[in-house]
Amino acid sequence: MNRFGSQLQWQFVLLQKNSIITISFVVTLMYGLVLYFLRDIGSLDKLLVALVLNDPSVIGYFFIALAIYIEMKHQILQAIFVTPFNLHHLFLSKVISVSLIGMVCSLGLAFSVKGFDFNIAWYAIGSLSICILSSLLGLYMLTFSNEFLKFAMTSIPVFLAFVNLPLLQHLGVFEMGVVKYIFPIQGSLDLIDYSVSGTAINFGFAIASIVLFIPLFYWLAYRRFLRKIVHQ
């Protein structure tokens, strides 16, 4: 546990050195200021949910990949791979550090609109789950490209399907019926919607979705990362 704690602390240091924490907070601050000045024009719950889906998921998906590419460029990962390290510790510390940053940013967005008038606990669980799933998907997808620009280009359709199809369904652009429940972030989206709007949801499904998809994404990303990055 001490080794994992040290690894987690080191990941925060790396994220700060690479300016990823600063960029995340600056972007969230910009969104938050817009929401704050618009808060009196009417209900912003739909807009808040849309930003919460996109801001933390971008932090999780793209920023964890950016961090990996930077470390590969500077030979940091290659140096780690030749030491007796625990890949699970490395993997989990990267996912958790980026996801916690995304969750904090998403809470900042909610506070800018709702103050304390929302269910903070369920909101935090929903946004953290989205960040974790996005991070794991990012770790999986980065194994198909050797540089960040190629990763970003090839990731566009995947990311749009992962985040924006459930979002468009939520905004009422189209109706997918029960098909929406196959999307990995639907349970997290339901928790966030309930937290800010009080929308009736199926808590059993929401929790089961999170409990099912996070280990599945972890297993897929871990195996792919081990084969294509560590043992390349």
Rank of each mutant, 00 (worst) to 15 (best):
S127M: 06
G172N: 05
K150M: 11
H74W: 12
F159S: 01
N86F: 09
L168M: 09
N86E: 03
L137Q: 01
H74P: 12
A124R: 00
I80W: 08
S97D: 03
V58H: 01
L160C: 10
G60P: 09
V82H: 09
L171F: 10
L160H: 06
L47Y: 09
L87R: 00
L171Q: 08
F116Y: 13
V95A: 03
H170R: 11
V52D: 01
L107Q: 04
K46S: 08
I96H: 03
M176L: 12
M72T: 15
G102M: 02
L160N: 10
V49P: 01
Y123S: 05
S135G: 11
C131H: 01
I182W: 08
T83M: 08
V173R: 04
V179H: 07
P184Q: 03
L109E: 00
A124G: 13
S93T: 14
S97M: 04
V113T: 11
V104W: 05
M72E: 15
L90K: 10
V52T: 06
A161M: 13
F183K: 00
L100I: 15
A65H: 07
H88W: 11
S112T: 14
V58Q: 00
P184A: 04
L165W: 05
Q186A: 13
N54R: 14
L48G: 01
S57N: 03
N86H: 11
I76R: 02
E71R: 04
F144C: 09
K46R: 14
M141S: 10
I120M: 11
N119R: 04
F148N: 00
L87V: 15
V98Y: 00
I96K: 04
I59H: 00
V52M: 02
A161G: 13
L51I: 11
Y123P: 07
M153R: 11
L47I: 15
D55T: 07
N164W: 09
V113S: 02
I101V: 15
L87W: 04
I185L: 10
L137P: 12
V58W: 01
S93N: 09
S99C: 11
F148T: 05
D55S: 06
V113C: 06
Y181E: 03
I64A: 02
T83Y: 06
G177L: 12
G60A: 05
G126D: 03
K180L: 14
L168R: 03
K114G: 06
I96Q: 01
A161T: 15
N86D: 06
Y69G: 07
M153V: 15
G138T: 08
V173Y: 08
F116S: 14
W122P: 09
F151N: 00
V173K: 07
G60M: 02
